[in-house]
Amino acid sequence: MTVLTIESLTKQFRGLRAIEDVTLTVERDSITSIVGPNGAGKSTLFNMVSGYLKPTSGRIEFDGHDITGMAPYRICRQGVARAFQISKPFPELSVQENVLVAASFGRAGERDAKATTTRAIDICHLTPLRDRRAGSLSIGNLRRLELARAIAARPILLLADEPCAGLNDAETRELTNVLSKIRDSGVTILLVEHDIKAVRRVSDRVVVLEAGRKIADGSATDVFSDQAVIDAYLGTAPA
């Protein structure tokens, strides 16, 4: 079943076409990764799905509703959560309190907030750290806190913005495990990520953007053996 449908989406900034006629669908309970070189339009696409940018043309449908150009908080209420690359926790609150805020004020409302919080913390491997002050966490733990907070709002779709950027191998591995667990808990994930190893490991499907256009779409194995993708992207970076 399709959760998110993007139809011939275009975003024009003055003379620049950041996204040009991109069409893609995201299936329920899958991890779909968007990759591409810098400036390919990944962030622009994300910002349009979460409502921070209005598309120039095209259509975005989420869970059966047209959300094109809707305000961010309304999209959020429909069930789209976003985990930012630069996570901004409430520094003086504990890990648990941070997640509890998201659970209590988010889409789900205050009912069962406690149980939701415990579950989100567990999924994100934060249980031993739950009483730590968020301001004292390392970057890897912060990223997982960001994810825990996002899923505590009980979203249908999670937009994860480069969660592995700047992490070491061990941290990346732990994070991809967490992403898989989130998917298995019934949250669909749309991932933007630079780390190809991580993408290979977790993705059910990979979409490649280059200069605002979609140049490949399929399973990780298929996409990364595609010559056009290798030329456009992998050829430029030692992967």
């Binding site: 908080y73 609150l93 805020v101």
Partner: peptide, 20 residues
């Protein structure tokens, strides 16, 4: 709830708004 929400606003208003 009001107090907790206000505490969050005090620490980071934009994030608080984003979390609902």
């Amino acid at each position: 709830r009001l107090g907790v929400g206000l505490t969050c606003i005090g620490q980071d208003e934009d994030t608080a708004a984003m979390l609902g």
